[in-house]
Design a binder for these strands. Sequence first.
RNA 1: GCGGGCGUGGCGGAACAGGUAGACGCGCGGGUCUCAAAAACCCGUUUCUUCGGAAGUGCCGGUUCGAUUCCGGCCGCCCGCACCA
Length: 881
Amino acid sequence: MDTERYNARAAEPKWQRIWEERDIFRTHNGDPRPKYYVLEMFPYPSGRIHMGHVRNYTMGDVIARYKRARGFSVLHPMGWDAFGMPAENAAWHNKSHPADWTYANIASMRKQLKAIGLSLDWSREIATCDPSYYRHQQRMFLDFLAEGLVIRKKSKVNWDPVDHTVLANEQVIDGRGWRSGTLVEQRELTQWFFKITAFAEELLGALDGLTRWPEKVRLMQANWIGRSEGLALRFEIAPSDKAVAPNIEATEIEVYTTRPDTLFGARFVALSPDHPLAQEIARQNPDLARFVAECHRSGTAEEAIETAEKKGLDTGLRVRHPFDRDWWLPVYAANFVLMEYGTGAIFGCPAHDQRDLDFANKYGLGNTPVVCPPGQDPALFVITDTAYDGDGLLINSRFLDGLTVPQAKEEVAIRLEATRVGGRPQGQREVQFRLRDWGISRQRYWGCPIPVIHCPACGVVPVPLADLPVELPRDMSFDEPGNPLARHPTWKHVACPSCGTKAQRETDTMDTFVDSSWYFLRFTDPWNDETPTSPKMVTKYLPVDQYIGGVEHAILHLLYARFFTRAMQITGHVGDLKEPFTGLFTQGMVVHETYQARDGAWLYPSEIRLTADEAGRHAFRLDTDEEIAIGPIEKMSKSKKNTVDPDDIVADYGADTARWFVLSDSPPERDVIWTEEGVQGAAKFIQRVWRLVGELAGIAAPIGAKPSETLSEGALAIRRLVHQSLIKVEEDFERLRFNRAVAQIYDLANKLSSAIGAIETEIMGDDLRAVFREAAEIFVSLLAPMMPHLGEECWAALGHADLVATAPWPVADRALVVEETITLPVQVNGRKRADLVIARDAANPAIEAAVLALDPVRRALEGRSVKKIIIVPQRIVNVVG
RNA sequence: GCGGGCGUGGCGGAACAGGUAGACGCGCGGGUCUCAAAAACCCGUUUCUUCGGAAGUGCCGGUUCGAUUCCGGCCGCCCGCACCA
């Protein structure tokens, strides 16, 4: 009978409307209950949601609903990471305005998200492109500026020639722009930088405290920050070198090394082509000038990355070895020395560094081994083309001979710190970081304007607070490449706020990662017009208890947000908050198999018919019926057409089916494979739940009935399995193991069906009816966070007038699950042979006797004598024969 | 090159803390119902087997009464970083 079927298409909008009307997902800032902040990384408003969004937001929603049922004041907000290139590209292609495009996309995506049935507090919705948001960001920029946390400096930057903008180091992946995918070039530009390096030590140290973050993400951040301990030391330039390059002012070269122990293995000193000294000499030495220019050319392009051949040129300079006044080392300019790290100069020890060895071998500089591997005869130890970077004892190193590597490092540091040259120690222990400052200037229109004015007389002048926000002009044209803001006829021309003369606005906008570095703070009080945050509300809600998003943000967004929290603490915006996210979960992708026709064209899953037999699965084109090869399973992408539109799934099966499916099958941190069969399985289960709850409603006692203390063994068994499931699902929700919760609920459904089948309903007593009442309510409560619409429909079918979304979580009876008799598996020599049903508190001698009386045990022993019986209480018995 | 992770049926995956390997789902096979189909329900589904059992969690070895789990060494796949001195 069709009327018996659960109709998601009718039920889902109905419950969504009721939730909205009753406004049950609004979080009240005055709520005295303990808070729980669950947040999913907010989306970029591209126009349509995809299955990855559905998976991400469903996980967060399960937690939000579960925690709400457990009595927390749950903050679960949503917003839009709304600035960025695609809006400008769309403007270019469709002649639409980025703002119109973005707000239209937000409207359609909001509608899609609502159709998923997410329990979000929409009253806190924010869009980063809204002046009511970015005005606060501009204010914060000025606060940072006043504190020296943002600086302007000339520097080599990554230039994306396709997007016509600068990229941060974190946004360059394999030498390519993270969005455009083209090779980036190096350019010298004056840019704004956030001083993230000022927090390098702290950002690294605090990673240890983030115990609810994936180990992988913590490691990635630690590697990115890249702390190393070493020694900065100065080499004196030979005076005679004035002849080589007569106008050199420098008298010494400072290098940084983590291996001061190998100083006696030094064969050369090398400068980065960008080193000021190299540049200076190049001005007087045409050969070197040519070499530096060559390095610059290849430094930007792929050859540098792919060939990585060591090249250098002797500058003619000579420097004195720090421990030997008569030992002179040649100074090269070398392409493999980076100006950005350390001092831009190194000393080369070919025997113990592969790069130095390659270089030395190419230019005939030789090598001296100074660390001898354990067990090697020092006299026979030679290095040819593989450097030795392991431990050992020092050799060929005068006063260091016989020391271990750490001892030698220490000894060199002590000696060079004690040696004073030109009034300073010759060497100094130093900690270096790989992390660079965060360049945030972008030559784009659709971003947050940087609120400063360049005055020919006063220099950089902050925009007065009263003049904020600096709003983006609306009248724009996007028909030329480059920064549209810079071309706007009037916008940038302003009077200097300080002296009144003609000045120009900064036309660069901020990196969009700035927008997402503090949005989670804004959610706590988005109504505040005065200040970016209300520190009281930040203190109330932060840190975020559970943050969920893709691992692709492991470094970029998550590191920036951690930096912002610290910087905002200094500017007084976040109270004493240190870390923004205590719990982090990085979920896997939604992947799908691909279908490619013989002519190479990709086909959508909706253009395919699937069959299966014992030989395997087959795919056929719907239009021609031609058989198609099933291709590899890959991340859903438009180019491979292996996408499934959430809207179609919601229309065909309902949101609960999509939610249930993305939570089932795969552990949440791994990729989930979207399959049509799996979706149908989920849809079938929903019908099964509906039938099962219908049956339970028919036999259950009225609302409020409680099982009595004296239940029959059969009734007790049902209660027991229900409470066991409850305990397991609780654990699974707490640990975000949604796939296990799903399996548990399937299992409970199976067991409840069998239980109903096993009893004769017409002679059922009140006790059993009360047990089924409890069972039904717990069953529905367990599945409701995952399938909230079905949950409501079932809850109503059980006679409730209120909502399961606001019902308290059932209380597990932990004493109940302890049984009086237990089933012990019995092993003989480690292999299971039998089960022993025995009293829970049976003494060991009784167990031993019972075990030896078992037929299968005697058979397995084959007459051997029993050497030993191991009894693990309430777990297992092992007979050793 | 450096760092990290993962290898379990036809497939996705379970297995708390060293204690019954394969829960649960998908697929497949068989059956019930039906004129038929769909839906639903029931049974089976690691491999081999003389039906007693035997082998089995990438491979080799170790520790243990007992190892998917711990240790050592290989093989394969995936991810991150990459001339960082």
